[in-house]
Amino acid sequence: MSSLTRRPRFHFRFQPRYLLYIPLLLMSVFYLIPMYVVIVTGLKSFDEISLRTMWTLPSGINFDNFVVAYQNLAPSLWNSINMVVPAAIISSFIGSINGFVLARWKFRGADIIFPILLFGMFIPYQSILIPLVEFMRTINMYGGLPGLIMAHVIYGIPITTLTFRNYYATIPKEIIEAARMDGADLLKTYRHIILPVSIPSFVVVLIWQFTSAWNDFLFAVVLTKPEFWPVTVALNNLAGSQIIAWNVQMAGALLTALPTLLVYIFLGRYFLRGLMAGALKG
């Protein structure tokens, strides 16, 4: 019907729906404004810095702000790296093993495990904070990175387990049964059949745990002493100090955001999958 009334088509014909680019571009400006200010400020020289000229472009490219910000944040950036890498890797393996067992193993009471895990994913961590600090003090892990890694690994169990479990539930049972017919036990099946096909899920979970541990502030500020502060705590401290200028704070913010931003830019697809798993599971 509609084809009868359709007007003849031309190349590059303007379509009314292209007007939708106007709101899309306006919204892009909204999301990019903070990024613009951070980059522009970061590239200005110290003489150019003034709150009055926050929005103007720099007259040349200058890395002074980043150098000073890096000098201030370097130890904590390394703390973050040393904490996040083991935390993400350990979390992923624990999640993978749990997910595998829970996906294929039907036992009495299995139904109760999922709501118990899910609830653990959503609790406000304030409700376990006092015992956590007391516990870390008792076992002498308060103040350093191992305690913080342990906290991220343990409180990451629910989300990593559920993400892997949902993925493994999609692997056909026949594949596992065939391996078992050949006499492979559970661990062999996991190692030779399951692990090789788990790479996409590992990427999703590694990225998720990397991002949440890197961006965490609450556990870090409660569990670490200043010399082991991760970068989020150090940046907040930098921003709160009266001595450090705002332009250096901006450069510091960019340095802090860079690792997770790079992961997002290059592996965004996997990041999104983790995000959705965290929200809706499955």
Partner: peptide
Amino acid sequence: FLFPMAISFIVTGVVWRW
């Protein structure tokens, strides 16, 4: 539209305060 999800609330806060 999704990129701010990848960064920390602390970073967002430090920038937005200015």
